[in-house]
Design a protein around this nucleic acid. Structure first.
Length: 231
DNA sequence: ATGACGATTTACT
DNA sequence: GTAAATCGTCATA
């Protein structure tokens, strides 16, 4: 099989810049089922199949780091051309990875939240440490994903289209999920964003064991006790 | 200079 | 379910 051979031989051709030159909503959907590939300095390769991503709509999106046109040293990478990595540090201990998209200079991006390990599992487990016992959940969360793939400050601003160190590629062994296998939900951890918190800007592969927070049946709204049934 | 706060994860009750 | 970990960033002074 050409696919398996391609994966094994490392010919994981990076997706071109045109893949990223779209709105964050389109990219988040499009990204599901693709592989995020990491080549470590020692030559070891790790890869995950992306199963969860969130769109951040930029200047108008209260949940986005670039809301209101904010532009600082921290979020500068979001103003770079599509296909750039935006890696930020949060909670004093975690990193998260975004793919910048949209028009050149438009500060919109997609947060890569989770993936199923497909290659380099041993290395990823090692990087995650003792807390990660479940192989399927090594990258089930934006910060877990970064820890498993050693994605940190050094990759902020990295060009994802070069095929060096960190890039995305089509999965040679599995087609992308169809619309029936994709579900939308509210974004995670943005309760401070008012009306923007409820919008369904998170895309997931339905039923994947590797997602961070499974979507709620109702579409991701906060838990609410049902009023007493009428009868 | 200072203070509040995370696009999170883990451990614990 | 709650709380702690832990520190760079940003707004304010």
């Amino acid at each position: 099989m050409a696919g398996a051979r391609a994966a094994r031989s490392g010919r994981l051709k990076p997706l071109p810049r045109s893949f990223y030159a779209c709105s964050p909503e389109v990219l988040a959907r499009r990204m599901l089922g693709t592989l995020l590939v990491r080549r470590f300095d020692d030559g070891v390769t790790a890869a995950i199949r992306i199963v969860e991503a969130e769109a951040y709509l930029g200047v108008r999106d209260r949940a986005a780091h670039t809301f209101g046109g904010r532009r600082t040293a921290r979020n500068e990478a979001m103003y770079a051309e599509p296909g750039t990595a935006y890696v930020y540090f949060t909670y004093g201990m975690h990193y998260c990875l975004n793919a910048v998209c949209g028009e050149p200079g438009e500060p919109v991006a997609v947060l890569i939240r989770a993936g199923e390990p497909v290659r380099g599992v041993e290395r990823m487990a090692e990087l995650r440490g003792p807390a990660a016992r479940d192989e399927l959940r090594l990258a089930a969360g934006p910060a877990r994903l970064c820890q498993a793939m050693r994605i940190d400050r050094a990759l902020n601003g990295h060009d994802l289209t070069t095929g060096e160190a960190l890039w995305m590629t089509n999965d040679p062994d599995q087609p992308p999920p169809g619309d029936r296998e994709v579900v939308r939900a509210a974004r995670v951890g943005v309760d401070y964003a008012g009306p923007w918190a409820a919008r369904r800007l998170r895309w997931l592969v339905r039923g994947s064991p590797s997602v961070s927070v499974p979507p709620r049946p109702g579409g991701g709204r906060p838990t609410r006790k049902r009023p007493p049934a009428g009868g």
